[in-house]
Nucleic acid binder design. Structure first.
Length: 619
RNA sequence: GCGGCCAUGGCGGAAUUGGUAGACGCGCUAGCUUGAGGUGCUAGUUGGGCAACCAGUGGAGGUUCGAGUCCUCUUGGCCGCACCA
């Protein structure tokens, strides 16, 4: 309050505009501020600049203290009153401004533990808390308390018969103009009548639907050229009127459609609280990065607003979880002249030295550029229809899910999708082989399993357990790694089989494992999975089959392998009973060759045993 | 400028949340197989010695028995932003 050196108005401030009418230099300054814009790039480089209007303002606590009123480029009209009380010692922007115009500064908040007598501000404002100094009757108050004190005093003081100040909470919300001059969007149900003004469309006539017979052959909004949509009778006086042709920003619809979807058949009201209570909030919202900022903000705003209007009483937040997925990106191909080439027009050659690209027609060299979001202008696109035609939807989906975690961009590559296609073939062959040795569907479970059969069961149930966890956490690339892993293990187990006579227990294990295997990849490759399901003798759809239940007991082993470190470096593995006590583990670890070699006769200070995890010998 | 996220083999990426770094895949190398065309199989694949071992997760420190993971500083990249007084 007593550190003030100037007042500043936003360039758009009504007072500034009024003064500009009589002051061409001020008008020019305002015009320049506007042309610079307020983008962050402009802000970052913009110096603090101002124009002294010549106007003087009285200090609220001292009628004899006059402050110069500037118009300044760093004051925002949209926030608060569009005018600031400049205190250079304690605000960096004010300080930069004051230093630029030689206005000086007076420190009024002294940081804790600093001597007020020597406290000076030069290039860096002090924006923290502290104790008031140089502030007359406010001296000694804390910076938190002084705000209350100032507000209290100014609320009591009067100016022109009104309180000189009042407390106000400013919300950092901006206005949102929702109208768009476009066809695509919900019509705004208003009719403009020359006599009655803007008249709402009567409820009986709602909803206003967009006409289907529009043409886009001219620029501009086709609704404004559509006679039967445009010309209507005024609902109030019946005279000739015009329908509003602006439509709503599509963000309006996307902000609350999920509320409407809980009860879409209700014609009496937009929402019903019982339905909202049952369905919402949305468990998991998945969208691209473009949804992560604005859509989320608007949806939350709508939810709050609809709570206030009684349309979503029980709902505090719209989404319980938000997941932002990555994009599909592709390399960019250009020749020396700079022309872009489609991936399908390029041949890639891979050698130990690296990858090189050539044009498909003429074999001329092509530069391989960085991976970017697919765009028509850079021609780094692949046609989904062609992919589906040549590889199938399952292969395309499998490749996209397997290559990257879903929140990251996935690099589309011919090699990658080819590898996925090969795996589709390998899956089919493996399932064929499994079907030939698997027990019948209704075969009873054997009482005992041989080590080989137990190994197969362990592989299947282990993969199932891990994949379940991965799917639950949306880590599809890891779930897919489990499928590859199980393929490897089942393939190895099959090649170890003496075909003519497969034991009953092993047949049972293969049946169980094959059924689990198919269901593991069914979410990502549903078509292939149905084919394989049939191959395994099932009648119904795998999509309708229950998810298998993992038997956790199967993957617990009696003996485990513990890594043994000496001074934090791994030296050996200890194979020991799972339930071995700490003393036994310690003794066995110290007896290992690798450990003794690493110790080299040094005395052991301590042995740290983390059960089921690791042993560390400290020497 | 402020705030957030990230950095691991030739590549995409794993790492049980402080406990064996490099799962799984791609690519590459070698061998076998196939030879009517998007092959298949086996082995190898962080670097150095090619065995014991040493070094290693952008860089420099620190905490810890133990650090890719935690802390400090630093470099580079990506993202968001509304000078909010």
């Amino acid at each position: 309050m007593f550190g003030a050196k100037f007042l500043a108005l936003a360039p758009d401030h009504p007072l500034a505009e009024r003064m500009a009418e009589r002051d061409p230099k001020l008008a020019a300054f305002i015009a320049e501020c506007r042309s610079r814009g307020t983008s962050e790039a402009a802000i970052e480089t913009a110096e603090k600049r101002g124009y002294d209007t010549g106007l003087r303002a009285q200090h609220p606590f001292d009628p004899n203290w006059l402050l110069s009123v500037y118009v300044a480029n760093f004051v925002l009209m949209d926030y608060g009153t569009g005018a600031i009380f400049g205190c250079p010692a304690h605000d960096q922007r004010d300080l930069e401004f004051a230093n630029a115009y030689g206005l000086g500064n007076t420190p009024v908040i002294c940081p804790p533990g600093v001597d007020p007598a020597t406290f000076k501000i030069a290039e860096e404002a002090y924006e923290g808390d502290g104790t008031l100094i140089n502030s007359r009757f406010l001296d000694g108050l804390s910076s938190a308390a002084v705000k209350q004190e100032i507000a209290k005093r100014l609320e009591k003081a009067t100016l022109d018969g009104r309180p000189q100040a009042r407390r106000q909470i400013n919300f950092r919300l901006r206005d949102w103009g929702i109208s768009r001059q476009r066809y695509w969007g919900c019509p705004i149900p208003i009719i403009h009548c020359p006599e009655c003004g803007a008249v709402p469309v009567p409820e009986a006539d709602l909803p206003v639907e967009l006409p289907q017979d529009v043409s886009f052959d001219q620029p501009g909004n086709p609704l404004a050229r559509h006679p039967s949509f445009l010309h209507v009778a005024c609902p109030r006086c019946g005279g000739a009127a015009r329908r509003e042709t602006d439509t709503m920003d599509t963000f309006v619809d996307s902000s609350w459609y999920f509320l409407r979807f809980t009860d879409p058949w209700d014609t009496a009201a937009p929402t019903r609280d019982a339905a909202i209570r049952h369905w919402l909030p949305v468990d998991q919202y998945i969208g691209g990065i473009e949804h992560a900022i604005l859509h989320l903000l608007y949806s939350r705003f709508f939810t709050r607003a609809m709570q206030t209007t009684g349309h979503a009483d029980s709902l505090k937040e719209p989404f319980a979880g938000l997941f932002t997925q990555g994009m599909v990106v592709h390399e960019i191909y250009r020749n020396e002249e700079g022309s872009y080439f489609l991936p399908s027009e390029v041949v890639i050659e891979t050698t130990p030295e690296g990858r090189r690209a050539f044009s498909r027609d003429g074999h001329r060299p092509i530069q391989i550029g960085p991976h970017e979001k697919m765009s028509k202008s850079k021609r780094n696109t692949v046609d989904p229809d062609e992919i589906i035609a040549s590889y199938g939807a399952d292969t395309a989906r499998w490749f996209m899910l397997s290559d990257s975690p879903p929140e990251r961009d996935v690099i589309w590559s011919e090699e990658g999708v080819n590898a996925a296609a090969k795996f589709v073939q390998r899956i089919y062959r493996l399932v064929e082989d499994l079907a030939s040795v698997a027990a019948p569907l209704d075969a009873p479970a054997p009482v005992e399993f041989s080590p080989a059969a137990a190994e197969v069961r362990k592989a299947a149930h282990g993969a199932l357990m891990r994949a379940e966890e991965d799917l639950r956490r949306l880590r599809f690339n890891r779930a897919i790694a489990q499928v590859y892993d199980l393929w490897n293990k089942l393939s190895a187990a099959l090649s170890a089989v003496e075909t003519p006579s497969v034991a009953v227990d092993l047949r049972y294990a293969f049946r169980e494992a094959a059924d689990i295997f198919v269901r593991l990849f069914a979410p990502m490759m549903p078509h292939l999975a149905e084919e394989c399901w049939k191959l395994l003798g099932h009648r119904g759809l795998v999509a309708e089959a229950p998810w298998p239940v993992a038997e956790r007991g199967l993957i617990v082993e009696d003996t485990i392998s513990l890594p043994v470190q000496v001074n934090g470096k791994k030296r050996a593995d200890l194979v020991i009973e799972r339930n071995a006590d700490l003393v036994a583990i310690e003794q066995a670890a110290l007896a290992l060759d690798g450990v003794r070699r690493a110790l080299d006769g040094k005395p052991v200070k301590k042995v740290i045993v983390v059960p089921q995890r690791i042993v560390n010998v400290v020497a």
